[in-house]
Amino acid sequence: MDFATLLQVLDSTVRLATPLLFACLAGLFSERSGVVDIGLEGKMLAAAFASAAIAAVTGSVWLGLLAGIVSATLMSAIHGLASITFRGNQLISGVAINFLASGLTVLIAQSWFGQGGRTPSLIGAGRFTGITLPFAEALSDVPVIGPIYAELISGHSILVYVAFLMVPLTWFILYRTRFGLRLRAVGEAPEAVDTAGVSVIGLRYAAIAICGLLCGLAGAYLATGLQAGFVREMTAGRGYIALAALIFAKWRPWYALWACLLFGLLQAVALRYQNIDLGAFVVPVQVMDALPYILTVIILAGFVGKAIPPRASGEPYLKER
């Protein structure tokens, strides 16, 4: 493999890791507050459809982005209503949201556009296009660093940079602000937060709103950045890979970045090479597809460092009387 190919694979890694990263951080906010979210997939899908549909109708990708965020946040609100207000089973609520999104997106797409459950292809201002960073052209002749800057770092759409900036921002919010401290506390010991006079329900709804916002960005990037329009089931399990990355990262932001990049790399390699010939034996493409899940199971099993979720995750909070 030469240098140019390596750069192309890494470039595609960055693109494919972006939706994973958004969704993973979304899950991080939700689960750190004690609300388990296996509905990331559904929220992303809803956002992908809404952003592509609105961008196709209005011709403005920014309105599409807004619609994506609104739709994912609405899905989050349903999850919050079920799992926070009515203290239902958060896992079941997540499953319901995934199916709701999977059905509604195709239903509405068929009703609006009549193209078999997809939106028209987005053109021009209906899509996020790559932005060239300053000096990318000028530096591209410099050996090694030049191509890395011009090919790998420059030329992505704005949402890619937002995703990577979200990592330090999430870290800062969680570990350096009062809100973050309370958010982490509510996921570990909600009764202590309640005793201190802070609203458990309010904090959890706030976390879920952030989760919706980030899932909205993930879905919008998928439909208007990575691809040009919505097709049915276009998230293709990315929500679950993000969930896997979240566990892989043990619910911490910087590790989430590395986990998403790793899983993005696996996707990029699987896309480019199909079966990998290692001389002695051939690694089939299915191994690359399954690897994120296998790695997560190994991590979950605790054979390589134990992944311990926030203590109160999955449990609805009932105020004692």
């Binding site: 209503l81 079920a82 239902g88 319901a96 995934n98 509604l104 195709v106 068929q110």
Partner: peptide
């Protein structure tokens, strides 16, 4: 009709939502 099969997925989601997650409601 013009109603795709995904309608059933929506009904399925609503059943799961109401009988499972929103049971308390």
């Amino acid at each position: 009709t013009n109603i795709p099969r995904e309608l059933i997925t929506v009904i399925q989601a609503l059943v799961i939502l109401f009988t499972g997650a929103l049971d308390n409601m």
